[in-house]
């Protein structure tokens, strides 16, 4: 097994800064924005993105967490998963622009589950998707609006996102 580092700490920071700019451009500012990270690493990325946005736009952007465990379509095929807390910021999501944040976009099934979870919580005006890595191999008609890095990969390869908050270091590696 060989591991290759594709993104390092500085690359991740740069990617998030660029995504923040793109979000502000697409949304014409930070008004009505709500960032929802998908546990576990998506939540940390959402917090970082929120901090960058707050710095760029000089106003705090609400950041929360959206757990999709209970909405997955593969629950009965795997051992029971422990759910994570969902945290919706004060002010809710009704009529807002919600940006879902996740670490890796792969089959698209997690995002499908997230969209279902979202519709049980309220009715956002718009839902966007930001991911750190898009590795392809979609199984559903879903695409990301903001991508940190496109990483064409074989399905046999594994992609690991490590973040300071959970893993003690910042890097994205690909193992084959």
């Amino acid at each position: 097994m060989t591991a290759r580092t594709v993104l390092q700490n500085a690359d991740i920071t740069r990617a998030l800064t660029r995504i923040a700019h793109e979000i502000l451009e697409a949304n014409r500012g930070a008004s009505d924005l709500v960032l929802l990270g998908i546990p576990t690493r998506g939540v940390h990325l959402a917090r970082r993105l929120g901090a960058v946005l707050a710095r760029l736009d000089d106003a705090p952007v609400p950041v929360g967490a959206l757990d999709v465990t209970m909405y997955r379509d593969d629950l009965s095929r795997n051992p029971t998963r422990a759910p994570h807390p969902t945290e919706i910021p004060d002010g809710g999501i009704d009529g807002r622009t919600v940006v879902l944040v996740d670490d890796v976009l792969y089959s698209g099934r997690t995002i499908r589950a997230a969209l279902d979870a979202l519709s049980d919580l309220g009715r956002p005006r718009v839902v966007r998707l930001a991911v750190l890595v898009d590795r392809g191999h979609r199984e559903l008609p879903i695409r990301a609006d903001f991508v940190g890095k496109n990483l064409p990969s074989a399905s046999s390869e594994r992609i690991f996102v490590r973040l300071d908050e959970t893993d003690g270091s910042d890097e994205v590696t690909i193992e084959s």
């Binding site: 909405y71 994570h84 969902t86 519709s119 049980d120």
Partner: peptide, 15 residues
């Protein structure tokens, strides 16, 4: 986590 569901608009999960 289940208790949080009771505070939402849709008090149901598809699980």
């Amino acid at each position: 986590d289940m208790a949080d569901v009771a505070t939402r608009e849709v008090k149901k999960l598809p699980t």
